Amino acid sequence: MARAWVYDRTKDKTYNEAVRKAKDAKRTPPARWMVRYYDPSGKIKSGGTFKKKPDAEKRQTEIENSLHEGSYRNPHDGKVTVGEMAEKWLTARTDIKRSTWWKYRALLDTHVLPRWGDLPLSAVHTEDVAVWVAQLQKPRDEGGANLGSSQTRLAHGVLAMVLGWCVPRRIPTNPARGVPLPKPSEAEHVYLDHDQVERLANAAASLRTAYDQVAASAHNNRALILLLAYTGLRWNEAAACGSQGGSVPSADPRRDRLRGSRRRAHRAASEDGQVPYGPDPAVPGRGTAAVRRRPAG
């Protein structure tokens, strides 16, 4: 049995009546030739109507080839909006940290959904995504979002992940892939004085997300910033300071105590196991953070 065929609608009384009414009203009559086919689920679908039979036969061949190659997709699947699929995608992301989840939520709400949320998946094209990426970097007075290169790449990455989640079930390819992206800007080295370090550490200790949620790392932030600022540890060395050999530094928020610190932190500590921080020793207000020493031997 053929999976696609051309049907002559003049065999239907309803069609003939529609043609008669159209002629009486001096309107263009409906097309005569209809392409019909069985989709992979066995349901009969319409492949469109055509005035000329050769055009209908061409469409019939296209559908038969797509069914044979396995590249067929129900046109209805591509009509689902980007916004609907983005919500499903984010809900399904149970494999990421809570802080990352909220970061994706903020990028969707601020940059992705306002532009793409109401569009069907099939209406998203690579050239439009490229224009959107360029627009994100423009100043606000020019209608842009004034984003830096890193934030632009993050916003594009979220859109690309949403669209990639829909391949190949709803769209054949990801239109966000292959879009020119801004190169990551080289980080400018900024050196803080003692007062700035103290303010940064205090602010990080009370850090909250855009949705007024306590940041996952807030309880460790102050001790970690002081450790990095005054002991000379690299980030990977500080990350190896977990109390149980974990990858995240463990700190007691009540005493700013860093457990399991590395050798360089011990060398920086004084005889009583305190790492000094803050202004010059002669200035009141100089503080210390306790560092537990390893047993001798």
Rank of each mutant, 00 (worst) to 15 (best):
T81I: 03
T94C: 03
V82P: 00
F50H: 15
E87L: 07
D24V: 06
I63Q: 13
G42K: 00
G47T: 15
T49P: 04
N65Q: 10
R36S: 14
K45L: 12
R73M: 09
G70S: 06
A92H: 03
G48W: 01
H68G: 03
K52P: 04
D39L: 04
N65A: 15
D95E: 13
T61G: 13
V19D: 00
K79D: 07
K13L: 06
K21H: 09
K23G: 03
R59W: 02
Y38K: 12
A18R: 13
T61N: 06
P29H: 02
H68F: 11
V80W: 05
K88P: 03
L67E: 08
K45D: 15
K43E: 15
R27L: 11
H68Q: 15
R20W: 08
K43M: 14
K51L: 11
K23Y: 12
L90T: 00
K52V: 05
H76Y: 08
K52L: 00
L90E: 00
A31G: 12
A31Y: 01
W33G: 05
Y15I: 11
A92Y: 07
N16C: 08
D95P: 11
A86V: 04
T61C: 12
R32G: 00
G47K: 11
M85R: 06
G48K: 01
T28V: 08
Y72H: 15
P54Y: 00
W33C: 01
K79S: 14
P40L: 14
S46W: 07
S71H: 08
D24W: 07
S71A: 06
D95Q: 12
E69C: 09
K21T: 15
G42N: 15
Y37S: 14
H68D: 13
R20S: 09
V80M: 04
E87D: 07
Q60P: 06
K88S: 03
S71Q: 03
K26G: 05
V80A: 07
T49F: 02
I63A: 02
N65T: 12
T14L: 11
Y37E: 12
T91R: 01
A18G: 14
A25C: 02
Q60F: 12
D77I: 04
K43P: 04
K45M: 15
A22P: 14
P29C: 08
G48P: 06
T94Y: 03
D95W: 09
P40E: 10
N16K: 08
V19F: 01
A18C: 02
R36D: 00
G42A: 04
W89V: 01
R73I: 13
D95F: 09
H76Q: 15
K13M: 02
S41L: 09
R93P: 10
Y72E: 06
K21A: 14
K21W: 07
Y72D: 09
K52Q: 04
K26P: 08
E87G: 02
G70W: 05
E84C: 03
D55T: 11
V82L: 07
P75R: 06
M85T: 01
R32S: 03
Y37K: 11
K52T: 06
Y15E: 15
Y37N: 13
G78S: 07
